[in-house]
Design a protein around this nucleic acid. Structure first.
Lengths: 194, 194
DNA sequence: TGGTAAAAAATGAATGTTCATTCTTTTTTA
DNA sequence: TAAAAAAGAATGAACATTCATTTTTTACCA
């Protein structure tokens, strides 16, 4: 297969360079020439791996999103209680956002701008299913408030993005204590009060 | 004053066009020529009102942010109870994000990308003081959890941005019921449990 | 195993376009 | 009628993409 012969390393370097440059300068200020330079590749080579700039950024988005959800659900299994499952997933997500900060920043930028094609965006959402299923189960068991999945996501998961960005900008430090507090806030906002 | 002679209407039209085009196409795909066309103005005219493209977008950001906070605190006064004050401000913010959706989308994009100069970003944050003060008072009175202001913002206010964007993308409808639910989640996440 | 030719991959330079910004002229205002 | 404001066309730089070559890899045979 022609595709597989091309060095996967080069492709990865291109994706990585795209993330770093877009994070620092925004889509509008990251020319293909800079991406190529950072990946130690000729500009022309990019077009052996990607159709054009839009395709490069779409594919980068989809790949990073897939990594993110893979990491989030890696240690989860459906036999866990709702409460334990949620805590586990939440902490994995937090972990990803802190450890893979570059990747998470890139996703935040994509999710808040028209940078990405609608189709790629929808592709990215698909992988979230296990969390939605967990919430459905939680609602049935009377543990999770009977809210739309969007509301649950908005309060339980999305705030982590804000915190990550704030931390990245140097405004404050998201340490162990803060994280535990954040988790408690997340859980308070979606659990049924007793 | 030369400045004041120039038509304020033209300036406003430019700001409005910037918001609309950046919302729909992103910074990277909104040329000055399009902004000029949408504002019914010659490209050269933009440079009578703004230094350059970056300045145009910075100033637009600062102005919209100021509108936003002005609206948020318009009916609030410091003699209110913490609980009432928070509910009032929260609902004003929600109101703004739904009614002035274009403006709010623009802010979300600016806040999640390197589109805006750091200096302008900091300028925009200043106006949030009344809310921070309210939280400080709430913590003193034992009504609000003793968390950093960033955590409080992340859970109480920021989720509205996610909901607004999701609504704008057509995924779901943020009606009165949802809003009340969202408010309850917000409040649950930051209030001290009794 | 080593040599070689065909195919694939990679390159640097070229191309043509788009765009921010400026320049010169015209129109409006005072 | 002079000064300010606005306009449209011009300018030059930056950029995405393609082209013509060169380099590397693959596959085959001596």
């Amino acid at each position: 297969m022609a595709k597989l012969q091309k060095s996967i390393d080069k492709r990865n370097a291109l994706v990585k360079a795209t993330i770093e440059l877009v994070n620092n300068n925004g889509f509008h200020a990251t020319p293909m020439s800079k991406i190529a330079k950072m990946a130690n590749v000729s500009p022309a080579t990019i077009y052996l791996y990607f159709e054009n700039k839009q395709d490069l950024v779409n594919q980068t988005y989809i790949e990073v999103k897939a990594e993110y959800t893979k990491y989030a659900f890696e240690t989860y299994d459906e036999s866990m209680s709702v409460e334990d499952g949620f805590e586990l997933i939440w902490k994995r997500i937090a972990d990803f956002k802190l450890k893979e900060c570059e990747n998470a920043m890139f996703l935040a930028q994509c999710d808040n701008t028209p940078m990405i094609d609608e189709l790629s965006r929808q592709q990215g959402i698909k992988h979230l299913q296990p969390l939605l299923d967990l919430w459905t189960r939680g609602k049935k068991e009377g543990i999770i408030k009977p809210l739309s999945e969007y509301l649950l996501y908005a309060y339980a998961i999305n705030p982590l993005s804000f915190l990550m960005i704030t931390q990245k900008r140097g405004a404050f430090q998201l340490d162990k204590t803060h994280l535990e507090e954040a988790y408690q806030s997340a859980w308070s906002s979606i659990k049924v009060c007793k």
